[in-house]
Design a protein around this nucleic acid. Structure first.
Lengths: 403, 403
DNA sequence: GGTGATTTGTTGGCGGTACAAACATATTAC
DNA sequence: GTAATATGTTTGTACCGCCAACAAATCACC
């Protein structure tokens, strides 16, 4: 007898249909507001016209998609109805940060249709965050309670999250440790709650709706005020690792003569590449990535240029390491990393390329994040929609009690 | 219309059966010589008794498995026949190295049943290697030609291989560059040939038959005479990346004050952690990993101990990086890395663990490679068996012409 | 503006796959 | 030797997607 974790490896009829419903809903979801015609679905999936018709009808009766007549006709032949996601199923996205808690309502197709925030100037405990989140959810959900269904709640946490049960193992900037945030929030809201690392969810969002669309092998680096996070997508799906902690790209060694990181190691990427010195050099105290980028680009100071290039050099080392390890198609840079990249893209690309291993980077594309400030709302919602997208017909039978 | 590479996302009935045949054959294959009873298969797969019976019968008629009466009975109830892989289907494994070319014949279930080697003291070109390999294959295959079927050829190459077409992009130690080895060998042997990086295949072998059995998230590091290679398994499957170059773990930065690597970067793992200084300190010119380990363990020299610990320190940095990036369940150390690990396992483990990110390593298990010198034969054969294991009923209809 | 070509939706019948239930068979326990 | 248990075997069934034929809607061309 050999060791196998899941006792259900076999495929049955049931799973075929579920898989097909999932595939179709996933495609329609990814297509966003534009939707997909039924004939496009037949082409993409390779399934028969009649099968697509039956599957779409089922999704429609589940109120997950809506069929409508196409506005513009594309050519000869009978027009094919356009399939779009319904707006009935909504996910609630939550993002606790050091000084603010954000909550959003997101529809299938990736549209943020409501949001609210609450400042927490002195930070707050996980328990307090649950209370504040509950209030914010009540606030944003009031408009939808009557005729919408909440699929669940997705939480983007700036720290290490055990994805199996949503325990925040360590979130240094929030000063949370071993906090069962998902369980507490689930008790308060009576909804299924899933949590994951914020940058991992950023990667998921970029992969689904942003700069990583269609890329099966993708790495996302995000530079925020509190450090550098990362997310990895391989074979089209987010990589969690053994417990969900994969993607801590901020703690890659880039300088063995560097300074001590809060993690206890020396010369981590996030100790060498930071927003602070850049803001200081251009005389800003706090700024959005866009503002910072504009200021950096406008600056003629040598010191600014040198600092940007110093940071790009170290970022290049981390990207090179990742390229050698994962051979991704695409690396997406978010936050201030996108800003400094934009100052001198060629320089970063030169740092990443290494003559002796040219093959690992020859087809690599480095781009900036395409999603704006809503990225974590989309990523967190995506996490929550996962259950629904994986099993459109049976998701609501899945128990969500965790503990 | 959204971007999707494979135009066949839909599941049909046909695919269900193929998937189930594949699952069963894979399980039986992994079980090795012991085999699995039909009742065990029903438990593991969750499929119905009658379904298992039909599927096993089909695999049996394809001469892929053999059913036999169990020798020992396990308890009450009617004894369940044991399903084992048949020895009719064989893969040919090839491993060109700097001074030797190895060829083996491997059966389903992971048994090397014949092998041959040819010294190439002055190295040789890819073209010459194809000739030598063809001779070696003729030699080892002679005994099997009459009543066996060659599924294909798998090649483990110490270098970067584009897995799509088996072109060796760069193999520094062989001094090959842009060599279409698979295509040439396929023309010569009239067999399907697949090639991949040697360490990646080592990872696959350890995952299937060795220290990584059952680990869905696994990283393998191999220390050889010519450098350090790696292989990554995520979600149970080997990670190739965009073109097959993933797993170049020897070129992770571990010392920014280190020496220049042949890849063009500074302070790579494989420039800091090398076999040469160890051999020199103990006065050996060449030795197997076992011999080296015995000599190192027996040595009382401080210089030897210091060198081992210096190398373990750098190896620890690389392992820590990988643990932060991939959060694997298990890291397997092969070659001389296994040897130096065995000298002081706790030291390496202390280097890997970092207080601030304890979660990423808390469940990490570091072990040595379990497979001996046959590891690359098994890995290369596994690559070749892939086609068969993925589609037991239709594999031989797949065209193998590549170019 | 009619007619044919083209594309796609719709409907009904078909084949294939796994399942369920009933029966048969081989082993253990007493 | 008999009962209990587990598993192989056989037969019929449900379900799902495919195929073929027909219907409908658009475009191109005269």
């Amino acid at each position: 007898m050999i060791a196998t974790e899941p006792a259900e490896r076999g495929h049955t009829h049931d799973r075929v249909r579920r898989q097909n419903l999932s595939t179709i809903l996933g495609l329609v979801h990814q297509s966003g507001a534009s939707g997909l015609s039924r004939s496009e679905l037949t082409v993409v999936t390779g399934l028969n016209r009649s099968t697509i018709a039956a599957l779409v009808a089922e999704l429609s009766s589940l109120e997950l998609v809506i069929e409508s007549d196409p506005e513009t006709t594309t050519g000869v032949g009978r027009p094919s109805p356009v399939v779009r996601t319904s707006a009935r199923m909504l996910a609630i996205a939550v993002n606790p940060e050091i000084d603010v808690i954000r909550v959003g309502v997101v529809s299938l197709g990736g549209r943020v249709i409501a949001s609210a925030r609450r400042q927490t100037p002195n930070g707050c405990s996980a328990r307090r965050a649950v209370e504040l989140t509950t209030e914010l959810v009540a606030e944003v959900w009031a408009d939808f309670a009557a005729d919408h269904i909440a699929v669940g709640v997705g939480v983007a946490v700036p720290g290490l999250v055990r994805t199996a049960d949503g325990v925040v193992r360590l979130a240094p900037h929030l000063e949370w440790s071993e906090a069962p945030f998902s369980a507490m929030l689930s008790d308060a809201l009576r909804l299924r709650v899933d949590a994951a690392n914020d940058a991992s969810l950023g990667a998921l969002a970029e992969r689904t709706f942003g700069a990583g669309r269609g890329a099966a092998e993708l790495v996302y680096f995000n530079g925020g005020a509190s450090g550098i996070g990362g997310g990895i997508v391989t074979r089209g799906s987010p990589l969690g690792g053994a417990a969900g902690y994969a993607g801590e790209l901020g703690h890659t060694l880039v300088n063995s003569a560097g300074v001590l990181c809060h993690c206890g190691a020396i010369g981590c990427l996030e100790t060498e590449v930071t927003r602070g010195p850049l803001l200081r050099l251009v005389g800003l105290s706090d700024a959005s990535s866009d503002d910072l980028e504009a200021t950096l680009a406008a600056s003629t100071s040598d010191a600014v240029g040198a600092e940007v290039h110093r940071q790009l050099g170290y970022l290049g080392i981390a990207l090179r390491n990742i390229a050698n390890i994962l051979n991704p198609q695409r690396i997406v840079l978010g936050g201030f990393l996108g800003a400094i990249y934009a100052i001198d893209p060629e320089y970063l690309e030169r740092c990443v390329a290494v003559p002796g291993l040219a093959a690992t980077t020859e087809s690599l594309v480095i781009t900036r994040s395409e999603l704006g400030p809503d990225i974590l709302m989309l990523g967190a919602a995506e996490l929550s929609f996962g259950t629904l997208l994986n099993d459109p017909a049976g998701w609501n039978l899945t128990p969500y009690i965790r503990r």
